[in-house]
Design a protein around this nucleic acid. Structure first.
Length: 295
DNA sequence: TATGAGCGA
C-alpha cells in the first residue's frame, strides 16, 4: 500500500532545493519478505509529499520451481554441455517475465495518481531508479528484468534434492511443448527410493511383467499418441515398451499411459523432469507405476 | 475418469 503525505520543508530541504532543485533520494528497505520504498515528490500545489510504498515479495511457487530447475545439472548426451540452453538441442521461445512483486492497491493508487505522475514526468522530476529515464520506477519498462528476477528468484531458498544417480541435467526434450508449474512432494514408497539402486524384490505385475522401471503418465491430452510419448520420454533412456490406454472400440485415448524403461534410474529421472510439466495444454503427472491389480 | 491385452496349449 502507498501513503502520500505532505512534508513540511525543513531547513535542510530548503537548502537542497535552492542548490540543486532536487528531492531527497528514494529510500528502499527490504527484509526478504517485504519491501518499503520511501520517495519524495511534489503534488499539484507544489507541496512536497512523501510517498511510502509497501510491497510484499511473493514467494511464488512457480518462481521457486524455475529457480530449482535452473540448478539441475545436465546428463546423458548433454552431460558435457555448457550451462544454459544448447541451441543444437533446445529451442528457446521468447522469454516470459512475471511480476513477483504484488501490490493489491497498486491499480487503485495508479489511477488516483496517474495525472499527478504524468505532470511530474513533464516537469522532469521523475527519474527511474533502475534505468534513469524519466518515468516512475514502478513503471519502468525494464523493471521486470532488472529488479525482481534477482531478488525474488535467487537468494531465497536453497535447493535441496538433486536428481539421482549423478546423471542429471536439462533433458533435450521438445521444449516447445514443455513448460509450466510442477507438483512436488509426491509419496515414493521406500522400496522405490534412491532410484531403486538397492535391489529389492523384483516387482512383477499380475501378468508377469517386470514393473520396476515403469512409469505411469496421466493427464495426457486425448490426441497424444504412442509416438509422441516415445519422443517425450526417449531422451531419458532406453524404453522397452509403451502402452497408451485406449478404448477398445473407439480407439479413443483414455489419457494415461505406461512407459517401461530398461533402467530404473532412467525412469526415475523421467519422473523428476516430466512430472508437473505442461504438455499439450495439460499438466502431466508422471509417477511410478504400480503393477495392475494393486490399489 | 484413470494402474494396461488377449492368447486359451
Amino acid at each position: 500500500m502507498s501513503v502520500a503525505e505532505e512534508v513540511k520543508s525543513s531547513w535542510a530541504d530548503e537548502v537542497e532545493e535552492v542548490e540543486g532543485g532536487s528531492l531527497p533520494p528514494p529510500v528502499e528497505k527490504s527484509d526478504g519478505n517485504s519491501k518499503t520504498i520511501t520517495e519524495y515528490s511534489f503534488n499539484e500545489e507544489g507541496k512536497k509529499i512523501k510517498i511510502t510504498s509497501h510491497y510484499r515479495i511473493e514467494k511464488h511457487r512457480v518462481a521457486r520451481q524455475i529457480a530449482k530447475r535452473k540448478t539441475w545439472t545436465k546428463y546423458g548426451l548433454s552431460k558435457n554441455d555448457k550451462p544454459g540452453p544448447n541451441p543444437a538441442t533446445t529451442i528457446t521461445a521468447e522469454d516470459v517475465f512475471m511480476h513477483f512483486l504484488t501490490n493489491k492497491e497498486e491499480e487503485q493508487i495508479d489511477q488516483e495518481d496517474l495525472k499527478k505522475k504524468l505532470l511530474d514526468q513533464q516537469k522532469g522530476q521523475v527519474k527511474c531508479r533502475l534505468c534513469k529515464e524519466d518515468h516512475w520506477t514502478k513503471r519502468c519498462p525494464y523493471k521486470d528484468k532488472l529488479e525482481p528476477l534477482r531478488t525474488s528468484l535467487y537468494g531465497e531458498e536453497k535447493v535441496e534434492d538433486e536428481p539421482q544417480q549423478g546423471t542429471p541435467g536439462v533433458p533435450p526434450v521438445d521444449k516447445t511443448k514443455l513448460g509450466g508449474p510442477g507438483t512436488q512432494g509426491k509419496y515414493v514408497p521406500p522400496s522405490m527410493r534412491d532410484g531403486g539402486s538397492k535391489k529389492g524384490e523384483s516387482m512383477m505385475s499380475a501378468r508377469g511383467r517386470d514393473e520396476t522401471a515403469t512409469v505411469r503418465v496421466t493427464n495426457l491430452s486425448e490426441n497424444t499418441r504412442e509416438q509422441d510419448l516415445q519422443e517425450l520420454f526417449r531422451s531419458f533412456g532406453d524404453i522397452s515398451r509403451i502402452f497408451l490406454a485406449k478404448d477398445k472400440n473407439t480407439g479413443q485415448s483414455k489419457g494415461f499411459a505406461f512407459i517401461n524403461f530398461k533402467k530404473r534410474e532412467h525412469a526415475a529421472i523421467a519422473i523428476q523432469y516430466l512430472n508437473g510439466y505442461g504438455y499439450d495444454h495439460l499438466i502431466l503427472s508422471v509417477e511410478w507405476a504400480k503393477p495392475s491389480g494393486t490399489q
